[in-house]
Design a binder for these strands. Structure first.
Lengths: 135, 135
DNA sequence: TATGCGACCTGTAGTGACTACAGCTTCAAG
DNA sequence: CTTGAAGCTGTAGTCACTACAGGTCGCATA
């Protein structure tokens, strides 16, 4: 048997989610409003801890809060969970691949420009020229 | 000799930057307030076109508006342009590399999870389990 | 018991880089 | 002269927080 009721600071420490962020999640309805003690301070239990950990790990995997809301609905809900979750994940992976591709292209362009850069005080800078000239 | 004065819509079409965005750039001081005609509408010239194109290409290369502000200062300014620009660019490339690394890691984790996913209606979903189970 | 201090509270505003909208005025073509 | 497109201002919304001001509460120590 655990004590299983902690204030917001303990929940924050246990999950690594900042206090303000926890209150923000409550405000936008992602976390339920917990009961309060006599002094109107929030008291959380293990269920809250679990849910908040889920949210945090989802964020670490790059899901948006809306996607996490959806995932939470699937967990608690009743439905074709695995198929739906797979669809969401596949879309998410496709997003990530697109981003990586764009960023690598960017990196290539910038590296090439920087390589042409003499690093001395001459005002002819290939990077600024690339930004300023045509197209 | 060019006509060299166009309203905001023409500037928008010429640069590919949306009208609202141009006004936003003016509000935050990134673009100068252009002269107005009798009817209080903005009239731009080739200088504005050039500056806005610079901003746009900078954004395409992933610079923040603050970084672009700095770059614009260097262009007009007087200083060790090439060296400073190279430093900024190198830092920017390092940022991009970090992002790419993180995203690829994410992609790998998600792909592995999705691969374990049967896609059928069974409620045991490896992705949800990965999110729900401890660390 | 007093007091002090850290933890907690609410509410608001700021971040970055826009986007959207309401409700006007102005311009240009027919 | 009318109509419709283009322009205007100002405000609010987006996303996911973060920061701050100005209070209240809980607990340990003197």
């Amino acid at each position: 048997m655990r004590v299983d009721h902690y204030p917001i600071g303990a929940l924050s420490a246990a999950t690594g989610v900042k206090i303000e962020t926890i209150r923000y999640y409550e405000k936008i309805g992602l976390m339920p409003s917990p009961p309060r003690n006599e002094g109107r301070q929030r008291i959380y239990d293990a269920g809250h801890l679990e849910r908040l950990s889920f949210i945090r790990r989802g964020r670490e995997l790059g899901f948006s809060l809306d996607q996490i809301r959806e995932l939470l609905g699937l967990v608690r809900g009743h439905g074709l969970t695995c198929a739906e979750v797979k669809t969401m994940t596949d879309g998410h992976v496709a997003d990530i691949r697109r981003k990586v591709k764009d960023l690598k292209k960017l990196e290539r362009v910038l590296s090439e420009l920087a390589a042409q850069c003499s690093g001395n005080a001459v005002p002819d800078c290939p990077i600024l020229e690339a930004l300023s000239v045509g197209r």
